[in-house]
Simulated assay, not measured.
Amino acid sequence: MRTYDGQCHCGAVRYQARTDLAAMMDCNCTNCRRRGWVLQSVPAADFRLLAGEDELTTYRFNTGRIAHLFCRHCGIQPFARGRDGEGNELVMLNVNCLEGLPVIDRSTIMHWDGLHR
């Protein structure tokens, strides 16, 4: 486990997240596919928003259960908030927004079929 710093493009939204990046995935839903996300889920307790709460804009689609959060200045979605199947709060990190990221071997990423859920 390591603590990563993350941010939107302009830096108005900054956060820290603790993760081992062991369960990275991509999703084929219309939103994730168009954005080219690489996702990593972390428990809400392992995420800390450092700056920019008031700079975030929320977008919900499909079931509306996930709060897709965007910086209102640069439009980047650095993370999303939701709950897992047991109701636990989680944060889905946009791995591409993390600093000091190791090279990602995309062939090792799990694929989530969000399009058909």
Rank of each mutant, 00 (worst) to 15 (best):
M1R: 10
M1A: 13
M1N: 04
R2Y: 04
R2K: 15
Y4V: 01
G6R: 00
C8L: 14
H9T: 13
G11N: 02
A12H: 10
V13E: 03
V13W: 00
R14Q: 14
Y15V: 04
Y15W: 10
A17C: 04
A17G: 04
A17P: 00
R18S: 07
R18A: 11
R18G: 03
T19M: 11
D20W: 08
D20L: 05
D20S: 12
D20H: 09
L21D: 06
L21A: 08
L21G: 06
M25S: 15
M25P: 03
M25I: 02
C27T: 04
N28V: 08
N28D: 14
N28L: 11
C29M: 07
T30I: 12
T30A: 15
T30D: 11
N31P: 04
N31E: 05
N31V: 14
C32W: 00
R34T: 14
R34P: 01
R35W: 09
R35T: 07
G36F: 05
W37D: 01
W37N: 05
W37R: 01
W37C: 04
W37A: 12
L39Q: 04
L39A: 09
Q40P: 01
V42H: 11
P43V: 08
A44I: 11
D46C: 12
D46S: 06
F47R: 00
R48T: 15
R48E: 14
R48M: 15
L49T: 10
L50R: 09
G52Y: 04
G52P: 02
D54M: 02
E55S: 10
L56Q: 06
L56N: 00
L56S: 01
Y59M: 13
R60F: 09
F61I: 06
F61R: 05
G64C: 06
G64K: 06
R65E: 13
I66F: 13
I66T: 09
A67D: 15
H68V: 10
L69W: 06
L69Y: 02
L69F: 06
C71K: 03
R72N: 13
H73G: 15
H73A: 12
I76Q: 14
I76H: 05
I76K: 08
P78G: 04
R83P: 01
D84G: 05
D84I: 12
G85A: 15
E86H: 12
E86P: 02
E86T: 06
G87S: 13
G87Y: 15
L90P: 02
M92T: 13
L93A: 01
L93T: 00
L93W: 00
N94C: 12
N94T: 01
N94M: 03
N94S: 07
N94P: 03
N94Y: 01
V95S: 01
V95G: 02
N96D: 14
N96L: 12
L98A: 03
L98K: 03
G100S: 06
L101C: 07
L101R: 03
P102S: 09
V103N: 02
I104N: 09
I104F: 03
R106H: 13
R106E: 05
R106Q: 07
S107Y: 07
T108W: 04
M110S: 08
W112S: 10
W112A: 15
D113V: 00
D113I: 00
G114I: 00
L115N: 08
L115D: 11
H116E: 09
H116A: 11
R117K: 08
